[in-house]
Design a protein around this nucleic acid. Sequence first.
DNA 1: AAACAATGTAGTCATTGACTACTATGCTGT
DNA 2: ACAGCATAGTAGTCAATGACTACATTGTTT
Lengths: 195, 195
Amino acid sequence: MTDRPYHHGHLRDTLLAEAERTLREQGVEQLSLRDLARQAGVSHAAPRRHFADRQALLDALAGAGFTRLADEVAAAIAAAGPDFRARLRATGAAYVRFATEDPALMELMFAAKNAEANGELAAGAGRLFTLVGDLIREGQQTGQLPPGDPERLRLLIMATARGIAGIVGPGQPGAGQADALLDDTVALFTRGPAG
Amino acid sequence: MTDRPYHHGHLRDTLLAEAERTLREQGVEQLSLRDLARQAGVSHAAPRRHFADRQALLDALAGAGFTRLADEVAAAIAAAGPDFRARLRATGAAYVRFATEDPALMELMFAAKNAEANGELAAGAGRLFTLVGDLIREGQQTGQLPPGDPERLRLLIMATARGIAGIVGPGQPGAGQADALLDDTVALFTRGPAG
DNA sequence: AAACAATGTAGTCATTGACTACTATGCTGT
DNA sequence: ACAGCATAGTAGTCAATGACTACATTGTTT
């Protein structure tokens, strides 16, 4: 049709990048394979070579999301310095910021259909869990977090972070309260013996 | 076509009930207006008389969901007796149970598009917030919850409950840990001066 | 009983995801 | 160099869906 080469060359990446943008700006339900194909300048059936169906694209997005989230949390912890409270807060803040800037992606990440069969998702989620798990053990060793099963504490802390992320977005009951809620959370968890 | 009366009589309620079931059993994306019409035995355009578009149906479901959730929380508090910790735990348990049994509905409730224009949603959400707010003031007065802005504490507690609800379902990282997490949460919040 | 509002019907349209058959391109081994 | 083949794109089709319009039936009100 045009003088564009027959082979796009980076179609998969292009589709994913465009999909991530549409997801962020317009939500999942507005995400259409045909629309992505149009934006990439390929035929409506081309995406099928890279994603078996719509859900496969969403799963790929979820995998990339976990990878990025794990990166951002790791960077936040590293940048927070040695103080444990600062590290814990930075972790929560990174998590909440991610979820706030890209709520639709966050939902996708935790609603991914075939999590087991998604290597990148499993890797990213595993890395995230390890990061937070290590942080918690660190806090318990220095006595700044209460003792007890660290797995259980990790679940609770990650649940709290996700809960805060969920109510802090625009139009939600806690809009704009992210900082206050994070402060309260850190204080709540670290007011133990050595707190 | 059949000898069914021309006017269904309870079409709106029938559609809502059927939609709630489909939502619970198959998720939002499987919810189709035409399918609901077929199940109700009416023409594909009939639902339009009661719901302007698909989103309007989802919003109505969200409203009904908030009403039911507020009812269940109120009942749980009433049934829990006078002990504050028991009341707090019952509230969280009711919340988590609701979200676990109907995760898709829960998502809808917090993703409702035009929350302001949805009277039932606003009423139900308001009632829920009041219930939890009153409970928190009660806990602060008896010294079993830390002092401070009760609104802020309510946000944090409701965020935590929602966070727990989100990771406790099947296929989630905290599957089956609802009771343990609720225990930890109650202990965490009530270990103040008079705790 | 006439008018009218409410509620349901039938038909149409554009969009979409999924599928199939076909085609162009680039790579590999000889 | 090139034959063969895997990869990645194209074109066309189909059924399902949400949205819309024009019309028909029923119930209510005056």
